[in-house]
């Protein structure tokens, strides 16, 4: 049985990815960030023995270390890691001429960009022992510098550009050890990034999760070349 580790699994895309993996017969170690959200608990209850829920704040060294230890207590190896957790901000309209909020930008970077490094490092002892050695990173079109036409939303866009660069550098670093990478822009989803469910968005998270899992689990040209692809398979420039 293959084992996956998913961050930000409480709701949104992370929950649907977790559901999709469980339905495919995987064992999933799912990172819980929200204390009082019932969906992940219910899902795990329906797949007892194969779903392990661990508390996880990817912005905290200690929390990530503890989660990695808990993961090690329930699995000898991890085959696939999905770096999904991220935050946005209510301060997205601040411009350089109007005054930026640097504290908020540090908070976002610590989670969206550094979180992926933290989790990758803490789980290495388990992923090194895995058969797939696959790192899947949920990024965003907001990280594409070439395509960027925004005049604000500095913190989020900068964090996702940095995340993409982190993926490129980790790919360089770990590819020789047998690791492969998938980098995804999931599209505009009806999820909770703004705090409540965004019903105006285009895509249902379960539909995106299905496409994402095919991309994450299957073989592909991406085994040798790191690219950011969207949920429909389109390639994005850096």
């Amino acid at each position: 049985m293959h084992t996956a580790f998913v961050t930000g699994a409480d709701r949104g895309l992370g929950l649907e990815l977790t559901r999709g993996l469980l339905e495919r017969g995987w064992r999933v170690i799912a990172g819980r960030y929200l204390e009082n959200w019932h969906e992940l608990t219910e899902l795990a209850g329906r797949h007892e023995g194969r779903a392990v829920v661990v508390p996880l704040d990817i912005g905290s060294d200690r929390s990530v270390r503890d989660a990695a230890n808990l993961a090690g207590a329930s699995a000898d190896a991890i085959d696939l890691v999905i770096h999904n957790a991220a935050v946005s901000t209510s301060l997205k309209d601040l411009t350089i001429a109007g005054g930026l909020n640097y504290e908020d930008m540090i908070r976002i970077y610590n989670i969206n960009a550094i979180g992926m490094l933290r989790v990758t490092e803490a789980l290495l002892y388990l992923t090194d022992a895995g058969t797939m050695k696959r790192q899947c990173i949920v990024s965003s079109e907001a990280g594409s510098i070439e395509r960027c036409s925004r005049e604000a939303w500095y913190g989020y866009c900068m964090s996702k550009a940095a995340l993409n660069m982190g993926a490129v550098r980790l790919h360089e670093n770990l590819h020789a050890d047998g690791y492969t990478f998938r980098l995804l822009h999931p599209g505009w989803m009806k999820t909770y990034m703004s705090g409540s469910k965004n019903e105006e968005a285009e895509l249902e998270a379960d539909v995106v999760a299905e496409a994402a899992l095919r991309y994450f689990i299957g073989p592909g040209e991406e085994d040798h070349r790191l690219v950011m692809k969207d949920w429909a398979g389109g390639e994005w420039p850096w």
């Binding site: 960009a113 510098i145 500095y154 550009a161 982190g166 550098r169 980790l170 670093n173």
Partner: peptide
């Protein structure tokens, strides 16, 4: 230099 490169990518985006 993953962290260094990341900070520069963030700068380029800004």
């Amino acid at each position: 230099y993953a962290g260094y490169g990341m900070s520069l990518a963030a700068k380029h985006m800004s």
